[in-house]
């Protein structure tokens, strides 16, 4: 099963719509609540990152019997130093993002913690693609 969503940059009122839809689908499929929570927390953090840092992006979730793979691709500034971005507490978020309760440099580390596999492909000036895989 394939699910697809567009993510608009800067639209914080809609940030989380894709994660919410993925959550509902996984619930309907009878995936265990503990696994669903890991999936949606990881995808939600990544979705908020697209809203906060990019010029817009697209989420594609592939649901298979053994697990879920979610690709979050954005066009945007990219991440100049991925190692630094993976450190807890490192953030380049704007004041607006912080006012929404994010941007404390917790997102990428938390995605990694919840994912069984996380791949980050990024090019400065072009954008970033995250691939999150979580086993059922």
């Amino acid at each position: 099963m394939r699910l697809e969503y567009d993510v608009t940059a800067g639209d914080f009122t809609r940030a989380g719509n894709a994660s919410s839809a993925i959550k509902k689908t996984l619930k309907q499929l009878g995936v265990s609540p503990a696994v669903i929570k890991r999936v949606v927390v990881a995808v939600y953090e990544a979705e908020v990152n697209i809203v906060a840092h990019s010029y817009g992006g697209h989420i594609t979730a592939e649901v298979a019997p053994e697990g879920i793979s979610v690709v979050l691709a954005d066009t945007g500034p990219g991440i100049p130093d991925v190692q630094k971005a993976m450190q807890k507490g490192f953030s380049t978020a704007s004041k607006e993002v912080r006012e929404m309760g994010f941007g404390a440099g917790m997102g990428l580390p938390n995605i990694q913690e919840n994912a069984d596999d996380l791949k980050i492909e990024t090019e400065v000036g072009r954008g970033t693609t995250l691939t999150i895989y979580i086993k059922f």
Partner: peptide, 11 residues
């Protein structure tokens, strides 16, 4: 804000 409710939903 909406994101605090969203965060609760995701959690």
């Amino acid at each position: 804000n909406v994101q605090s409710v969203r965060t609760a939903e995701m959690s």
